[in-house]
Nucleic acid binder design. Sequence first.
DNA 1: TGCCAGGCCGGGT
DNA 2: ACCCGGCATGGC
Length: 222
Amino acid sequence: MTKLLDIYRTLLHALGHRGWWPGDSPLEVMVGAVLTQNTNWQNVEKAIANLKRADMLGACKLANAAPAELEALIRPAGYYRQKAARLGRLARWLNGRGESDEAAIEALRTLSSDRLRQELLAIKGIGPETADSILLYALEKPVFVVDSYTVRILARHGLAEAESSYDEVQALFQDGLPGEVELLKDYHAQLVEVGKRFCRRSRPRCAECPLLELLGRPILEQ
DNA sequence: TGCCAGGCCGGGT
DNA sequence: ACCCGGCATGGC
């Protein structure tokens, strides 16, 4: 079968390393993973900047924050009421696992991917993509992160059904790639970049897509 | 101006 | 088991 690695090599050559995930700490990555749900990263950056300025980017602070205060800080990221509650639940899950946030993260890293994923998915407001983003980018676990761009890119090239489930697409990549964290991190980042630049829902600029030569002209109308 | 963004949940069939 | 509306801000 093709070519998951060929696709990656093509993207890497065309776009260079993406350097994902942006963020100064694993906790910031986790927070960003929630804030970016169906939301432009640019808006997320504003919210994270607000949290930093207010010195609220800590598990204990987030866990005990007054909802209205948290909501005001993350407002630019949209869905701010839901996301404030989600951050609170995530922070409470993290809290008490170590003497510091760093220690808590280290404690989590010793647990298995399966167990962590199960626990994350049990938190209301954390679904498969958010959980896997946390596993891969905050906890360095070798899982593949699927997002809407991933499915759209595959579907437009006939490599998956547009209706494929998250788990199906994830299995496709995890079965076809070596489980190297750095590869999995950059691969997802590459797909997001391609999605943003060349595979939008409408008016795709697919003529400039670096995958055109390898995969052929995309099937639009989906 | 409208469409879209690095989803997820809950209620209704 | 699906399908769908709701959630919200800011940029192009």
